[in-house]
Structure formats: C-alpha cells, structure tokens
C-alpha cells in the first residue's frame, strides 16, 4: 500500500510539476517576446517590466537575467542591472555578452578600471556564433572608453588591436583607420588606411580618409594622389576634391619641397613673405616693438629682390611668429595658411 501511494504521489508530482513548469515557461517566453518588441519600439520602461516578469517566472535562465540587465542599462538604471549580470556571470564567467553588459554598467557608474577589465573579458570571452558583431562592439566601446577618459596611449593600442583583430572586415578596418585619424594618430591611420585600400577592391571612403591622413602627416604628394584617386572613384566627393586642391596649392607654394631650383624656392618665399607683409599691415602687427624692426627688413628684402633665400626664410618665420593666429589664413582650407603653419611647426621641431 505504501509503495502504491508513493507511485501515485510520484505520478501526481510529475504531472503537476510539469504542468506548472510548462505554464511558467510559456508565460516567461511570452513576456520576453513582449520585452523584445518593446525594446524594438524604444519603450525601455515597458521592456524592463516585461523582462522582470519573465525573470520572476523563469529565474534559472541566465539569458533572461541578461536581457533584463540590458534593458535596465538602456533605461539608465545600472545599479539595479548589476546583480542580474553578476548572476549570469556566476553561471558562466566567460560569457562575452554578460561581460559587455557589466562593462557598460561599470562605465555608467564611473568605475573605469573595472569597466576596462570587463570589456577585455567581453572581447576575449565566449560568444555564440551569431554574436560576433557584439564582440566587435565590445572593442569599439572599449575604444570609446579610452577616448572619453583621454588615455591616448591605451586608445592607440586598442585601435591598433582593433585593426588587426578582424582583417577581413572592411567596415571595421575602415572604422579603425577613421578612429586613429580622429584621435590624431595620423601615421597609424595612414598605414591602416593604405592596408584597406590595398586589401579591398571596394575600399569605400578609405581613399578619402587616406588623403586626409597623408595631409595631416604633411605628406602632400601622397595626399594629392589619394585625393585624386578618391575623386576619380567618386566625382561627387567634394571633400576629396577640396583636399586635392589644397594639396596641390601647398605643393605649389611650399619652399621646402625637394628638387626645387633656387630660383623657384626664392619665388615661393617672396610670394609667402608678400602675403605675410600684407597681413601684418592689416593686423597692425608691425606696431609692436619687434614688428617695427622687422617690417623695414621685409620691405627691403622684397623691394631689392634679394637673392638671399636664407634671409628671406628667416624673415618669413619671424613675421609669421609675430602675427596673431587670427591674422593668418586658416591652415585647414587655405594653402598659404597651411604652408605657413608647417613652417612654424618645422621651426619648433
């Protein structure tokens, strides 16, 4: 009789537990689906409420906890999201997505050091095959973290790592180049963008970016070449066209270009010094003590058409240094301004 009772109880427990579990799962799935829809419709609060219900119903599913955490992070409640992520990580510490969410939470909380660690755990963690784009996302967010915190050394390292991590991903390679350029690492950017241009038949705006990188490196010949190729590829690329014109202008004015004759160099110096002299007159730069002594010398050098290029260059540099930056033409858009800026920079170096 006891054995029969146990068997009956076992059957009853199986049936009831299974029915309850089935109901629970159904409801949890329904709530999770509603949460997804709410997320897609940018209704973050609703998504959180639905995911909370799903988590309560199915507390043993880490993916629900993670989804709730993501929803909470989206609505700006990182403190509340953290325990859910930690639970998901307790189940699977190398879960890449959970580490990425944790990194975002820590970043929102201002804990940069831990956030950085979590980003790295996300980058090198385990991802489903369909989640590789998120692994990339982790790298990009790490880059963004470094950019915001102003850690230039780490930013450069992260960007270079990003550029080598996915060699077949054109968009990512291009992104790495663009980010390097934006962060001011023009040498690395040019190298990276050249690789993109060489590796991919359809390099997108890599040529245009390469032109910018080379221009930033003051490598005007390559900048001109890249900009020309970009214009040839896309006639509507106004930026590349402007850059090509600017590079051509610089190449036509720069007295330091190699293989120039003495005469040509002197001519270019004269053009630049005349321009600077005019600017000095306009900006009253000559009325300062130093300017008073410099103006007659410049006028004399220009009037006598002196063949002394070195003196001309010295006068040019001195005049440029005396001019306030507002009086100089903008180096980003004006070839003379660019050449003058390069002269001063070269001198400082």
């Amino acid at each position: 009789m006891v054995a029969a009772s146990i068997v009956l109880l076992w059957i009853a427990a199986s049936l009831l537990a299974r029915t309850a579990h089935h109901q629970r799962m159904q409801r949890a799935t329904r709530e999770a689906t509603r949460a997804e829809a709410a997320t897609a419709a940018k209704r973050g609060r609703d998504a959180v409420a639905f995911m909370r219900e799903a988590v309560v119903l199915e507390p043993n599913r880490p993916e629900y906890r993670l989804a709730l955490a993501k929803a909470l992070v989206t609505v700006g409640q990182p403190a509340e999201a953290e325990p859910y992520v930690q639970e998901a990580l307790r189940e699977e510490p190398v879960n890449g997505e959970a580490n990425l969410v944790l990194a975002r939470i820590l970043d929102q909380q201002g804990n940069r050091t831990e956030a950085e660690r979590a980003f790295y755990r996300a980058i090198y963690g385990r991802w489903p095959t369909s989640g590789q784009s998120l692994r990339t996302r982790a790298r990009l967010e790490l880059v963004d973290l470094y950019r915001r915190s102003g850690e230039r050394g780490r930013l450069r390292a992260a960007l270079l790592e990003l550029s080598t991590a996915f060699p077949g991903d054109r968009a990512l390679q291009l992104q790495a180049g663009r980010d390097l350029l934006a962060a001011g690492f023009s040498d690395d950017a040019a190298r990276q963008l050249r690789v993109v241009v060489e590796r991919f038949a359809d390099a997108g705006d890599a040529l245009s970016l390469l032109a910018k990188a080379e221009f930033a490196r003051r490598n005007y010949v390559d900048a001109y070449s890249a900009a020309s190729r970009a214009v040839a590829r896309d006639g509507h690329d106004d930026e590349a066209a402007a850059l090509r014109g600017l590079s051509a202008g610089v190449l036509g004015l720069d007295p330091d270009q190699p293989r120039l004759s003495s005469r040509e160099r002197l001519t270019r110096l004269r053009v630049l010094l005349s321009h600077v002299r005019t600017r000095m007159g306009r900006c009253d730069a000559g009325k300062t003590g130093d300017g008073d002594s410099l103006l007659p010398l410049i006028d004399q050098w220009l009037a006598r058409r002196s063949p002394d290029a070195d003196l001309g260059r010295t006068l040019l540099e001195g005049a440029v240094r005396r001019l306030p930056p507002a009086c100089l033409p903008p180096p980003e858009t004006d070839a003379i301004g660019r050449v003058l800026a390069d002269l001063v920079a070269e001198r400082r170096r």
Binding site: V2, S5, I6, L9, W10, A12, A13, L16, A17, T19, A20, Q23, R24, R27
Partner: peptide, 23 residues
Amino acid sequence: VLIGVCTGLVVVCFHAAIELVDY
C-alpha cells in the same frame, strides 16, 4: 527516508498546485 520521499513528493504537488491556482 521513506517519510522524506513521501513528504518531498507532497510538497512538490503543493508548490505546483499553488502556482497553477495563482496562474
């Protein structure tokens, strides 16, 4: 041990029944 098994089964039924009524 027998008491434990029987009680465990009854408690499972109890929990599941409460949950189903709640739903």
